[in-house]
């Protein structure tokens, strides 16, 4: 069966999951944290019938100071660089126990959550290995707040060009981050896995359905989730959702899916809002000149056009 045909129960405003969240309130994320919002909505969509693996990072630290835990389903944290490998192991354990009749005979999604640092940098090798090995029930979620927030806002390879962080500071001879954001969804898609998608907490139903689809499709899935971080982006704490929406509307973070190699652009942005509307409320971009913004805008548009072309060209599954 083609992955696109795999059925799952859709989340709508009417069927929005009720009942206790799998992520309990009382965690210790910062006020207005977009990352914990995205995490909570995703695990809400999954209910209690899955297992989670966290990489070290903000979401792990803020949900698990002993003797408390915010997780109501089975959860494990091992280290920073290996969430994908640990999740692959959990899946292997579940698979064999299920095969031997030691577990009920049904699929248990194993969902790994890692930050952009834990995904695009230190965890990339483990992720590539896990995707290539094609763990049947693996869903990998990158929560992308575009820097190492847990350790104090250091740059990662997912930090956008021009952003000032504590290890890519803007200074007399520096404009901040001097490299372009690594294209993680494309790297995941290059593994020819059945499902890759981007998602945003500003489009929460879309995001919740994407993780449901990711869990329903047999074979590994990769979700790249935009996770605004008021603390690290140096913006007002009420702006997380707004900035996530502007990121989509300015073409900075397009929403799309790759299902069996078929590209679907979920939100066409024919008339993008000016890039400055997105950048300016964020202190990390404060030092950029109009010229710098024009340079970034040019790149953002080119990347968006490239994606639109992919969606046009690969409109049928390719494997």
């Amino acid at each position: 069966m083609k992955s696109a045909e795999v059925q799952f129960e859709k989340v709508t405003a009417k069927t929005f999951p009720k009942g206790p969240d799998s992520l309990a309130p009382g965690h210790r994320a910062c006020q207005g944290c977009g990352e914990v919002l995205a995490l909570r909505l995703m695990v809400k969509a999954l209910g209690l019938d899955f297992m989670a693996v966290s990489a070290t990072g903000c979401m792990e630290v803020c949900t698990s100071p002993f003797p408390q835990s915010a997780w109501r389903m089975p959860w494990i944290h091992v280290a920073f660089e290996n969430a994908a490998a640990v999740a692959g192991g959990v899946d292997a354990g579940n698979v064999i126990r299920r095969r031997k009749g030691k577990m009920p005979d049904r699929r248990i999604p194993v969902v790994a959550f890692a930050g952009d640092g834990g995904t695009a940098d230190i965890g990339l090798q483990a992720l590539s290995g896990a995707l290539e090995r094609y763990h049947e029930n693996l869903v990998y979620v990158c929560l992308d707040n575009e820097a190492y927030m847990n350790t104090g806002i250091q740059r990662s390879s997912a930090t956008p060009f021009g952003a000032s962080t504590t290890t890519s500071p803007a200074g007399k001879v520096s404009k901040g981050q001097n490299t372009w954001k690594k294209n993680m969804p494309a790297i995941a898609a290059a593994h020819n896995i059945p499902y890759v998608a981007t998602a945003s907490p500003a489009y929460h139903l879309d995001m919740m359905n994407k993780i449901r689809r990711a869990a329903a499709i047999p074979g590994p899935a990769y979700l790249h989730v935009y996770a605004p971080c008021p603390t690290g982006w140096r913006m007002k704490s009420e702006l997380a959702v707004e900035s996530a929406r502007l990121a989509v509307k300015s073409r900075v973070f397009p929403l799309y899916e790759v299902i069996d190699g078929r590209y679907i652009l979920n939100q066409k942005v024919d008339e993008p809002v000016p890039l400055g509307d997105y950048l300016k409320p964020q202190g990390r971009f404060r030092h950029l000149s109009e010229q710098d913004i024009a340079l970034i805008s040019e790149r953002v548009n080119r990347e968006y056009e490239h994606l639109a072309k992919l969606a046009e060209t690969f409109s049928e599954p390719s494997f």
Binding site: A120, D121, I122, Q154, T167, S168, P169
Partner: peptide, 28 residues
Amino acid sequence: TPQTHIVEHLSELVANGELTAEYVPVES
């Protein structure tokens, strides 16, 4: 943590041209 302040300050020194060095922000 708790090494961060050392390397953050070094990045700053390089960004401000106070230290002429290659700062390699590796991935692990």
